[in-house]
Design a binder for these strands. Structure first.
Lengths: 231, 231
DNA sequence: GGATGTGAAGTAGTTCACAGCC
DNA sequence: GGCTGTGAACTACTTCACATCC
């Protein structure tokens, strides 16, 4: 576990989930050559209220200018600092099926300090092939030193994979398998589950709730309708 | 938008996100031939407190037995009803790259009433090929009638794809592109963003928060360490 | 003037603690 | 005895409203 740093006060869970969205918005504006943005604009693009944006950003220290909003460059930088993007960390991916392949080849996955250390699979047909500039290694061999392990294997194998990763001293897991993992204290598990997202969407459709009822995203849930167009 | 039904009282957003997890746990137990489970056990497997489980389930009507817990079959059924799994709905997928392919071939994505209606792509090399028992159609042609549109295209194309889907009367979107969408009122957008999940995990690692500090999943966030083993 | 940053108020979600029932 | 279901207390998050500063 990395050393804690107390540069910013402790951020709330919903705030942490929104920061990457704000950062992406900042990137979009920077790309367009715009260098100022205000909480109102960030809010409309992110699907939250301007007040929420200001509270979130205030937690990173006061770097806005009253009357003029935030400087896009500084905004991006501060969020990066808060999320620890100045640190590099190694990621191993276990399971090089369609999903694993999609992840490592995505321009959106291994960013902000994440570095692919190695790829593993149990399938002899896949081991030895080249994927994303790495030769796929056998999962029963030695495991590279890494901070995060990404699990992209079938549900039934996920627990076994988690155990082997933990044994190899990987104590942060991102699990794409539809399987709750049992892990010892000291290991963080984060779940990504596509079908749950679909199911939440359907619940709202069936019940007429969600965006129409004014419902809001709860750590990347349903977003408020968003009429503003980026200039 | 489907007709609302008021079988159960309105559920809170965090509850809705947890129900699919409970349901999966119920499935696991049913598969093992176990037919009773209590809130304590569900909680340990899902990474939440027993009280939270009981509150969530109480929202679906009282179907537990004091002193004996919940019947696994009834639990599964009630959650299915609450989430609208008895209804079938059509899903179109736009973008048949690695990710789109991974999704439609996953045994975990198109479940619980979701039915793949059609696949679209703009790439002439992909259009016409067979994927998951469907011939990939050109995105500039007519779009099938569907309830949900899944967007698996590069970030820069996502807004255009969303607009065309909305024009074709698809008013619920699941967006896998790292891009906030601007949509008219009446359209629900739900985001799935891999890199954000990684970033949240890293934040906690850098700050020593998360599972060690007793932090808890916030709609599929970091789960509490989970020592219990399924019998 | 105009937008930030923040006390204070309001709302939502979780946890406690226990009555109620099997 | 044991576990559910729930009022009451508590905690967390959001929104209001406005003083503050450019």
């Amino acid at each position: 576990m990395a050393t804690p740093r107390l540069r910013t006060r402790r951020l709330s869970e919903p705030t942490i989930a929104r920061l990457p969205v704000y950062q992406r918005i900042a990137e979009g504006w920077a790309l367009r050559g715009l260098n100022r943005i205000d909480s109102q604009q960030i809010g409309e693009l992110a699907g939250v209220t301007a007040t929420t944006v200001r509270r979130d950003l205030a937690g990173l220290g006061s770097f806005g200018t009253r009357g003029a909003g935030y400087e896009v460059r500084v905004l991006h930088e501060r969020i990066g600092e808060a999320l620890g993007h100045d640190r590099e960390y190694d990621v191993v991916v276990v399971g090089v099926g369609n999903l694993g392949r999609a992840l490592v080849n995505s321009s959106n996955f291994l960013i902000r300090g994440a570095r692919l250390a190695a790829l593993y699979d149990v399938d002899a047909a896949v081991v030895g092939t080249r994927v994303a500039d790495h030769v796929v290694l056998p999962f029963d061999g030695p495991i590279a030193r890494a901070t995060v392990g990404v699990i992209c294997v079938p549900a039934l194998d996920a627990q076994m994979v988690a155990e082997r990763l933990i044994e190899a001293d990987v104590h942060a897991l991102l699990n794409f398998a539809p399987q709750v993992l049992t892990v010892p204290i000291g290991t963080a598990v984060h779940y990504v589950d596509f079908s749950i997202q679909l199911q939440i969407l359907m619940y709202h459709l069936n019940n007429g709730t969600g965006p129409l009822g004014g419902g809001l995203l709860h750590s990347l849930g349903i977003a408020t309708p968003n009429q503003l167009r980026v200039p």
